[in-house]
Design a protein around this nucleic acid. Structure first.
Ligand SMILES: NC(=O)c1ccc[n+]([C@@H]2O[C@H](COP(=O)([O-])OP(=O)(O)OC[C@H]3O[C@@H](n4cnc5c(N)ncnc54)[C@H](O)[C@@H]3O)[C@@H](O)[C@H]2O)c1
Ligand SMILES: NC(=O)c1ccc[n+]([C@@H]2O[C@H](COP(=O)([O-])OP(=O)(O)OC[C@H]3O[C@@H](n4cnc5c(N)ncnc54)[C@H](O)[C@@H]3O)[C@@H](O)[C@H]2O)c1
Lengths: 243, 243
DNA sequence: ATGTCTTTGTGAACGCGTGCACAAAGATAG
DNA sequence: CTATCTTTGTGCACGCGTTCACAAAGACAT
């Protein structure tokens, strides 16, 4: 994702739409749960309910992968787990580095959900000399000076940034220069990267603000319903622009 | 967001599209940075670059809020900060509770970015009796038994779930029953909620899997380019379905 | 073998979001 | 006051994603 670009123009990789790719992990999680309960087959209706999506959407999503269902029966759970895993690239091992081992970075390092799929934390990296060598989640933190060597030695292509916002762009550039081509960014900044590098962001603050917007709207609608008969339809908005 | 529904059918609140709402916090962040540098006005082109979006998109987004720009000049930074803050509901105080004070919950509690906008951590809640009373981020953890009282006493309408996946749905139901109408979910589960309750999810595992997909595709394209002349266009896929 | 019944896979319609391109607005200079 | 120049606000077209609705496919019973 390059500077200022946040939607993929023609990246329907092998014809698989981006929106579908984003839902495959959801299906995979639901299927894994079924697999653990030894359920042999599942219908699109049942699986869709478990994944929290529309069944027509699920069938269309699967149709991009191929015809893996059996009409009148449904989908073979184990087979579908394998197919989706393969499509997502989870049949191979993905070494990941986490940069910035503070509150959040340490929590991520301790997170078990990493290893559960093919992701393996290859190294924890921090710029603070006091952190170097300290064990976090049973793994010694390495100094940022080693970044390039770590990436190269372990063949890391996915990096997680959990540094303060001010350091994120610089860390990003070092990661990319060292060979990382996918970045998961937790710092509240827009990252600029060259073409061919994917960036996904997780931003708590943005999520909360979106919730606040809808929350305010709900409160406003209640108030509107109450005050509807008293005033005009327009609540309170200065029509003129100051300054 | 009700069970299985993940896009808002007719929620263009006052005509503001959901996609626009999701970008407003991005603009707000860029504008705040400009404001701190005492920049008086900014053009759509400059602001769009700072926020990492297309300038036409930015102008269209702002047009949903009203005509706040001046042709030939641009937008007044301070005024726009105020308007967007107001639109997002950030001019008021939003008390938030965090449920599940483990690795992640503690990191969230320690996160400074919460208070920077109108969000205030009203309480930290955990089910573990050993946690009760223990200070985290300078605040005593309260036991889950107190959940309903805390929500009610503080007028909390936004809840953050950072419990294990198995507990999330149950915690969610208690939050909703107690009056919470917006939930930010970090647990890897699909939450079922009644109409009128918004759920947003943050899922590290899904983000990584999406990155892995594109990563695999990049690697595959390189391999394809290399092996293009040797084999047919279809790499390796069993055409038959087993079992 | 034939019929019934379930469920998939997909064609088609629709709506939303994006980005182009330009007319209108207003600032600024002469 | 007029001309020029910059930048906004938006009409329009296009493409993606979602959903409906149904024909085709196959399982299963008789
Ligand atoms: N804590 C949260 O819950 C939370 C939530 C959302 C977003 N964030 C964001 O995540 C980031 C980290 O948050 P945190 O609470 O862990 O902060 P923190 O201050 O606890 O940790 C940051 C760590 O990054 C290290 N660091 C600084 N510069 C570095 C560099 N150039 N290279 C390598 N390491 C470097 C620091 O030494 C420190 O250990 C911040 O950008 C924050 O805004 C945090
Ligand atoms: N740690 C991460 O980086 C990370 C990343 C992504 C997702 N997650 C998810 O976030 C959640 C929390 O992760 P974690 O690493 O902090 O786990 P954790 O086990 O460290 O913490 C979970 C906490 O929730 C508490 N809890 C359990 N049941 C509860 C209940 N019914 N009510 C209130 N509290 C309850 C536990 O006592 C514990 O303190 C998990 O669902 C995990 O999958 C974590």
């Amino acid at each position: 994702m390059a500077t200022g670009r946040n939607h993929r123009p023609a990246t329907r990789s092998r014809g698989i739409p981006e929106a579908t790719v984003a839902r495959l992990p959801l299906y995979l999680r639901a299927l894994t749960a079924l697999s653990e309960r030894s359920v042999p087959t599942v219908s699109s209706e049942e699986l869709a309910a478990a994944a929290g999506v529309n069944s027509a959407k699920l069938r269309k999503d699967f149709s991009y992968l191929g015809s893996y269902g059996t009409r009148g029966v449904g989908y073979d759970v184990e087979y579908l787990v394998y197919q989706i895993s393969r499509e997502l690239g989870l049949t191979q091992d993905w070494p990941v580095v986490i940069v910035g081992i503070g509150n959040l970075g340490a929590a991520l390092a301790n997170y078990g959900g990493f290893a559960s799929r093919g992701f393996r934390v290859a190294a924890l990296i921090d710029a603070d000399p006091a952190m170097a060598g300290k064990p976090v989640a049973g793994m010694p933190v390495q100094h940022a000076d080693e970044l390039e060597k770590i990436i190269s030695d372990n063949g890391v292509s996915i990096g997680v940034i959990a540094t303060p916002a001010g350091a994120a762009q610089q860390v990003c550039e070092r990661l990319v220069a060292a060979g990382v081509t996918s970045i998961l960014n937790f710092a509240p900044t827009v990252l600029s990267v060259p073409d061919g590098v994917d960036v996904r962001k997780v931003d708590l603050s943005i999520e909360l603000q979106i919730l606040a917007f809808h929350e305010q709207r709900k409160a406003g609608e209640e108030a509107d319903a109450e005050a509807a008969s008293r005033k005009g339809p327009d609540g309170d908005m200065p029509a003129v622009m100051p300054a």
